[in-house]
Every structure is written in C-alpha cells, then in structure tokens.
Design a protein around this nucleic acid. Sequence first.
RNA 1: UCCCCCUUAGCUCAGUUGGUUAGAGCGGCUGACUGUUAAUCAGUAGGUCCUUGGUUCGAGCCCAAGAGGGGGAGCCA
Length: 476
Amino acid sequence: MKRTPIKKIFSSGKLGERILVKGWVRTFRNNQFISINDGSTINNIQAVIDSSQTSEDIKAKLNPGASVSVLGALVESLGKGQSFEVQVEKLDILGESDPQVYPLQPKKHSLEFLREKSHLRPRTNTIGSVLRIRNEVAYGIHQFFYERGFYYLNTPIITGSDAEGAGETFRVTNFDIENLPLDEEKKVDFKQDFFGKPVNLTVSGQLEAEAGAMSLGNVYTFGPTFRAENSNTSRHLAEFWMIEPEMAFVELEENIEVAEEMLKYLIKRVVENCNDDLEFLDKRLADEEKTKPEKDRSELGLVEKLKFVLENEFEKISYSEAIDILKNSKPNKKKKFKFPVEWGIDLQSEHERFLVEKHFKKPIVVYDYPKGIKAFYMKQNDDGKTVRAMDVLFPGIGEIIGGSQREEGLDKLKTRMQEMNVLQEDLWWYLELRKFGTAPHSGFGLGFERFVQFVTGMGNIRDVCLFPRFPQHAEF
RNA sequence: UCCCCCUUAGCUCAGUUGGUUAGAGCGGCUGACUGUUAAUCAGUAGGUCCUUGGUUCGAGCCCAAGAGGGGGAGCCA
C-alpha cells in the first residue's frame, strides 16, 4: 500500500477509507493522540491509538521528531480541533528521536537558534511554510515565462568575465593553493590552470543571456549567482538565485511592464495557492509586530500587503523626479537624511525607504539614472547624462529588481567601456553581438530570495533558504 | 568593512544601588491520564552567569581585550 501525503488527505480524503500515513511526530497527547506532519502541508493529521492495545515500549517512543508509519481508517473526529482523524490499526516507529537531545520542542524557537539547526528547521511550521512558498514562486517563474514564449536558458556558472566590473568574485581553480606555479615574473601562471586563464563563479548571467536574446528572441535565466562581498545584512547572501529575462526588440518601457506583470503574477499565484502557509506566516508576523513599539509597526498585515501590491499600479518616476521629491521632502528640509540629496548621487537606503514607505506608500519604479552610477552596458539617453536603467523598489527590502535597456550601438558601447576601464579584449564576443545584427534589447534581474522574503514576510534573507551562505558561514 | 545592541539552565527570558544559597515558564526525567489540541496534573534533576585579565573586603552586575549572535550602514539582487 502506498502512503497518502497529508496534503492529499486534507484535499480529497474520504471518510471510511483505509490509508497509510508516514511522517514525523509533532506531539503525543493523553496517551492517545499523535499529531503527525509529513511536510506536504503545514497541517498535521491526528492519529488515534488504542492505548490499552499499544505496548508501553511503542508509546515511550512517540516523541517529537520520531518518524512513524500509521495504517488505519480515516474517520470523523470526536474531538473539536479537527474534523477527521486516523483510527490506528497498525503503528510502526520508523526512526526514534531521543527527547533529551532533539533540539526542536513543541514551542516557539527564535529564528537565530533555528539557524544553528538548519538541517532540522524545515520541520518547523515557519521554515516549512517558507520553503513550500519558495517552491511555488520558483514554479511560477517558469510558468510565467513559458506561457509568454520565453526560452529558459542555462548560462555558465564558471565564467571568465566579471559581468559588471563590480562585485567581488570567487576564484575557481584546481591549483594546489599551497604550491602555486609561478611564471618568469614570479606571478601566478594561470596558463597552467584548468582553463588556462583565471576564472570565477558567475555574478550574473546577463551578458551570456544577451547572446541568447540576440538569437532566440526572448529568454530568461534562473540560476545561482555568487558574490564574495563581505556583506553582513538581512538582505544579502554570498550565494543566491537570480532570474534574468532578456528580450530582443524591447525597450525600457516594455521592460518595466514585464517586470511589474511578473511580480504581480507571482504574488497572485502565492495568494491563490499557498493559503494555509500564508495564513500561518501572516499570524506569525502579526504576533511579532505586537512586540514592537507602536511607531515601528507596519500598517498592513502580510496578506493585506500582498493584496495591496496586486491592486495598485507601481508608481513610475524618473531619477530626476525622485531627486526633486527628496529635495522637497520634510526629512531633507529638517536635515534628517544622513546622506545629502544631490542630482548624481546613488539613492541611499534611507532615500529609497522614504520614497516607497512614506511618500508613495507602494512599490515604485525609478528609471533614467545618471550614467556615472550605472554599468557600462546600459543604453545612453540623448541627454548625454542619463542611461535607460530602472530599479523596482519594494517596501521593507528596497531594490528587488535592477534592469535596463542595453546599449546596442557598437561605438557607443566601446567608448563607454573605455571610460569605465572595462577590458574590450575580455568581452570581444559581447561586442560582436553589436557588430553582427545588433538590435534594441532589454532585461532585468530579480533577486529570488529577496522576493521570497517579501511574500513570506521574513525579516532575514538567511531564513528563506535551506542552507544560507554568508561570510564565515558554510557549516551545512 | 564601519556603527550600535546582546550573550545567565536544553529553549525563551527575569535577576534591584556590587552583598552571602542565581530564579521563572517551557523542555527533560519519574509517575498519573481513553477525547487531547504547543494537552493537563503531581514530583524531580539541571548552571564554566561567553572567555581571559583587571577593579573591589566582595562581581552575573563595574572596567579592558577577545569570541559568538543580532540590528543598522555601505556594496548590491
């Protein structure tokens, strides 16, 4: 007999049928009631044993965390907490769990403590819900692009080019680092390395995706990226996943439209398909908010916030307009900003937060940034000062998407590379995309974990991955 | 990398102006319990007060350095 996932029992279980349930014990109460969770859903199923017919040895092993197999009939429950339960005919302990050392108790644990037990924390309601929602989002991303005729492209994880010229990279080598081969000038001789040149883990698949767009039309990547930056914040990881669509014959305006449409599609999907998990996280967040001082509490609950984003159009403003709003803002006039507002500066967290959370009170898209603070490949506007870049800013997490229309003119691109000290010989192939059949094209990058953070309401990005990677942390 | 905060039982925390024997809830252990819902009831064990050094008659509490954790900033997604 095959086991029935608990999720299936809740959705289509029939009273009277005999079922086999396998999962992990959450609690064992009153010598009778086993609460079992198998990860398929946040909901537990209650299995009822006949205490007098069950050996003391078995009962002593029904501890939190133990894995069990339960065979019995699905019957109407006599108790009030659930409408049905399993009347146990046969119970097997598959794996014991010593309560003296099992770290997860039937009580609330701090997320910091759970982070030290990353291998067990998916068994908690919170992390379990987050990972199920993460899956829903990942699947939704593929479906969104598939439905629109985009091709899923796998760009290399090991690359020879540092895509944006910014961001520390992780070097990849098979050298014996205790004994590096040196050339005549006593420098490391990369000719002897595996690839015959220095290579690193990718920081972005964008440049490679552009090659895809210049042949397949509309493509997207969805894969891991790596940054060796010493970032210690609640929204940075050393290893994270990025979604990077790249579209041929598309200009910035349409790029922004696709970004907004995608974000809403994904949120809608989670709201529709992850009700149980979302409800739990909503309540969790509400409880957490209660412990904060009133002025720091957010006005909307998690589900309310998601629906709010769905129902409202993102505000689109140019960088110059954003600067004007900031200059005329109360905090600026009262000199509350730590960083002065001046055309040409990069928007700081405090500025973004003011625009999103105080001024517009909804997601915003800022476009046409000064060229001096953006990457070399972005298309230059005719004003000579700005580029066709756009950032989508979300409440709570700030920049969730960064994108642009790409410079398709070969000469303009070369000039810009020279100005910004990007080596043309390293990117000869990228330049050839402009030499042969160049075309307007655009794309953007969505930080997967940041988006999952937003839809789950988790405050720390380290709690939306199974085993997060960040400075000094690769235990698991 | 910078700034701020924290570190007391397995977990979450309390611990008064420096004062003698460091507490609670949950969890553990022993026992009871056939309709419980993070079950409940009775009993019980459990501490390198992060580490090192210092001040003091006396330090969980004060000072210094270090370690670990968190929040914020920068970089960005």
